[in-house]
Design a protein around this nucleic acid. Sequence first.
DNA 1: ATGAAAGCGCTAACAT
DNA 2: ATGTTAGCGCTTTCAT
Lengths: 348, 348
Amino acid sequence: MRPSIKEVATLAGVSIATVSRLLNHPGTVSAETAARIQHSIAQLGFRPNFTGRNLRAGSSRTIGVVLPTLANTVFAQCLQGIELAARVLDYSVMFTTTEYHPADESAAVELLLGHRVDGIILTVADASASPTLDLLERERIPFVLTYNQLPYAQADAAARASVSVDNRVAACDAVNHLMAAGHRRIRMLSGCFNESDRAVQRYLGYLDAMRAAGLEPLPPIQLAMHTTTTAADYQQMLSSPRLRPTALFCSNDMLALNAMRDLRALGLSLPQDMSVMGFDGIPIGALVEPVLASVVQPSEQIGEVALRTLVGLLERRGIGLVAPGDGGRHVLAHDIRSGTSVRPLAGT
Amino acid sequence: MRPSIKEVATLAGVSIATVSRLLNHPGTVSAETAARIQHSIAQLGFRPNFTGRNLRAGSSRTIGVVLPTLANTVFAQCLQGIELAARVLDYSVMFTTTEYHPADESAAVELLLGHRVDGIILTVADASASPTLDLLERERIPFVLTYNQLPYAQADAAARASVSVDNRVAACDAVNHLMAAGHRRIRMLSGCFNESDRAVQRYLGYLDAMRAAGLEPLPPIQLAMHTTTTAADYQQMLSSPRLRPTALFCSNDMLALNAMRDLRALGLSLPQDMSVMGFDGIPIGALVEPVLASVVQPSEQIGEVALRTLVGLLERRGIGLVAPGDGGRHVLAHDIRSGTSVRPLAGT
DNA sequence: ATGAAAGCGCTAACAT
DNA sequence: ATGTTAGCGCTTTCAT
């Protein structure tokens, strides 16, 4: 067993209370005893046990993070942002994944609650109907959603905190970008709607843009996986020349890159035979050729803001205040990255 | 404050010991009381507090993970592998980043030790001279290195556990692959050597291959950042037509993709004017055009094996056995992904 | 300035 | 089958 505060106290010839004081309120201990205690600490290689401290304090200075998967770069960036910000504020991060399975969300949260994390940052499949969020609310544990975009707060309901871009508007902007390049027959390729409310919002944005332009929206192609495709997904779309789109708007960049690979495998030249636009703006998209046109969301910043918001909630609660009415519903600015994956159409 | 085992006991009209028994050794409790306790648990929304349990047990069923950055996909994949495997074995994961700064490694580990994680999985700058690893060893806390490749165990020294590919051999294979395509003037583009012992090993592999082929190795181009470049990095290399390489071997894929972007910006056509090969085999490399030739290391598997190895160490220690002589020095198989980013040279 | 003691939630002897 | 109790490491009154 590692040395505890008790061994240090004994070695220094003081009581454990004095050691604790030196650790937590230096200055309330005389210089002489302080030195003696420091010496004992060094000699024993003592390291305060957070478990004891946490048990006593009822808080762990640890936050939980629940994301769908790290296979999608966008979430890796977000976690990176969270971790960096947490480190600055002296919080630790416990991390879990759901693989996009709503069922895993509750399990993940249950585990984190068992560890008594102070708060949770999470991305759920559907924020507007999530037993997991209800649980969190019932347990009164502060949480901040990332990527999930909440409806504006009802007058009666307490607003939940969230950090995201405006997915619907952003998707609309993307489709407008395609239309500005002369595209009319635009089809959406999307991850499974009931595993991602973002995908739904982005599809709605697609509808908005198409309708505003007086164009007939095409039915979305929904995929089983969020970031992977099979050639079969395109057969139907490509088979009918009349229905064949000139541009594909994908609900995320990984999907867009996969689609591009598949289309090339089917013999198409990009962007000559098909324009592709993504969503997320992952850094790699800007490195490849053709450059992937995309909606850039500031993922690392989303993580950072989420963490700061959460910590804000935690400290505020410490002071005894309730979360303010509008919680922290952060809608960050998105940006359109034009890229050579979108070909301007002749006759525009 | 949340309900504790005490409230449950009171409500059910039993002692806390009985509640604890039901939780940990069901079957030693009569069906009738069990039902009564379950009812109280549900009614109170009781959830066992791991902090109390951990303090008592002296172990947390939590492992710490320290990686350089998630901005490099390869580490995101590794963490993904760790998390998945941890979840299966019912371990939680506390995650930290070092940004490649050796100084941050110790700080990260100190924090994890404070939390009393049962073990640590980490990637350090230089495993052969790491105060952090020495600390871990002194504290007798089980750990497994990922990506860091250890020298074969000395007879006297206790072997450290590690999971990696054979970086030197893999790099040699990569350069041989380039040479098989007819390249002779091959230059290495690398992350900072003293922030990555892998980069050093890979450079050594480069030297091996060049020398074995009777070719004069070129000096490596070392970059300040591991995954980012600036056009200036190439000026010198490209300025002298006589010294201009036909192929670039990059110490990681992110770097390779950055380099390709930069070279294109400088007006080169790829792979016509320059062949590029990477290292890591990140999934995206296979999606882009030209396909990025690379050394594929099984990153997610590296994470999974690391976790299983660590848990093996933990459980074994529980039984009272010491770690075996060869620890777990796992060298996983790598694979060469040929890609169109390498152009076969005429006159081969 | 320092010490004594209670208690955070839990488990495992040790009783009964 | 169940209860009593000590104690994991720590912080914090309350005394002194």
